[in-house]
Simulated assay, not measured.
Amino acid sequence: MAQEVVATFAGPLDSFSINLTIGNGSSAQVQSVGLSGRTAKFPVTWDSMGTFAGPATLTSTVGVESEVVIANFSGFAPGEQVSFTGIDPDFTGAASAGVRVLDLAGARAYALFSDGTTAFGEFEATTAGTLRAVMTK
């Protein structure tokens, strides 16, 4: 079985509603998940990470108002899922333009695990009309 964390921006791809789910399919706790908007189809700045929900505790969010944001967690155990709803990314240098889900294609993600290992992935469109990044440990 693959040791992975899967991050998904819900569709449809032409939606301006930006929501992210992160599932921990590894055997270790996830300490942090980072998102880089620098490599997105059109680079984005994470203006707001919206509302957090899930069984883990969000201890901090670092990098809001920049192209790289890191969410730090406590208790993000294997088999659990967390979500951010109402994320507000802006195109870097053009804050008034609306970002769609598809515009986030190519953004990169990483997970830092409690055992000190890391995993990386890139958001790609799926046949289900979402963007998905698989970070394999």
Rank of each mutant, 00 (worst) to 15 (best):
residue 81 Q to N: 11
residue 42 F to K: 14
residue 12 P to K: 04
residue 8 T to H: 03
residue 45 T to L: 13
residue 101 V to T: 08
residue 136 T to Q: 12
residue 81 Q to V: 14
residue 62 V to S: 15
residue 44 V to P: 07
residue 12 P to N: 01
residue 137 K to F: 02
residue 61 T to A: 12
residue 131 L to I: 09
residue 117 T to H: 04
residue 125 A to F: 00
residue 9 F to Q: 03
residue 55 P to I: 14
residue 11 G to N: 07
residue 32 S to I: 03
residue 134 V to K: 15
residue 2 A to K: 10
residue 4 E to P: 00
residue 24 N to L: 05
residue 129 G to E: 02
residue 77 A to I: 11
residue 74 S to H: 08
residue 11 G to M: 07
residue 72 N to V: 08
residue 36 S to N: 13
residue 35 L to C: 11
residue 8 T to P: 06
residue 105 A to F: 04
residue 116 G to F: 01
residue 52 F to H: 13
residue 63 G to A: 13
residue 98 G to T: 09
residue 106 G to W: 03
residue 28 A to Q: 13
residue 31 Q to S: 11
residue 45 T to I: 12
residue 74 S to D: 12
residue 37 G to P: 10
residue 126 T to K: 07
residue 114 S to R: 02
residue 24 N to T: 08
residue 103 D to H: 07
residue 32 S to M: 06
residue 7 A to R: 08
residue 61 T to Y: 01
residue 77 A to V: 12
residue 124 E to V: 13
residue 38 R to A: 15
residue 32 S to C: 09
residue 13 L to S: 05
residue 23 G to T: 12
residue 114 S to M: 01
residue 41 K to C: 08
residue 37 G to Y: 05
residue 16 F to T: 13
residue 24 N to K: 05
residue 9 F to D: 01
residue 87 I to F: 02
residue 104 L to F: 02
residue 107 A to D: 00
residue 104 L to I: 10
residue 38 R to C: 06
residue 58 L to N: 05
residue 133 A to F: 06
residue 59 T to R: 02
residue 6 V to H: 01
residue 20 L to W: 03
residue 47 D to H: 14
residue 118 T to G: 01
residue 85 T to W: 03
residue 56 A to H: 12
residue 55 P to E: 15
residue 129 G to Q: 07
residue 70 I to F: 09
residue 80 E to D: 10
residue 72 N to C: 02
residue 136 T to Y: 03
residue 29 Q to F: 05
residue 38 R to W: 10
residue 95 A to G: 12
residue 22 I to R: 11
residue 116 G to S: 11
residue 59 T to H: 01
residue 69 V to A: 14
residue 103 D to I: 04
residue 124 E to N: 07
residue 13 L to Q: 05
residue 75 G to S: 09
residue 5 V to A: 04
residue 121 G to I: 06
residue 92 T to Q: 09
residue 134 V to A: 09
residue 93 G to F: 06
residue 135 M to G: 06
residue 51 T to P: 05
residue 98 G to R: 11
residue 26 S to Q: 09
residue 97 A to V: 14
residue 26 S to V: 06
residue 3 Q to N: 12
residue 95 A to T: 07
residue 36 S to L: 06
residue 134 V to M: 07
residue 4 E to M: 03
residue 83 S to W: 00
residue 5 V to I: 14
residue 120 F to C: 01
residue 32 S to W: 02
residue 120 F to A: 08
residue 64 V to F: 01
residue 118 T to W: 00
residue 33 V to K: 00
residue 79 G to D: 08
residue 73 F to R: 05
residue 12 P to G: 04
residue 20 L to T: 04
residue 132 R to A: 07
residue 134 V to D: 09
residue 21 T to C: 03
residue 64 V to E: 15
residue 98 G to L: 09
residue 106 G to D: 03
residue 129 G to W: 03
residue 58 L to W: 08
residue 62 V to I: 15
residue 74 S to C: 08
residue 60 S to A: 15
residue 30 V to E: 08
residue 53 A to N: 15
residue 64 V to D: 03
residue 68 V to A: 08
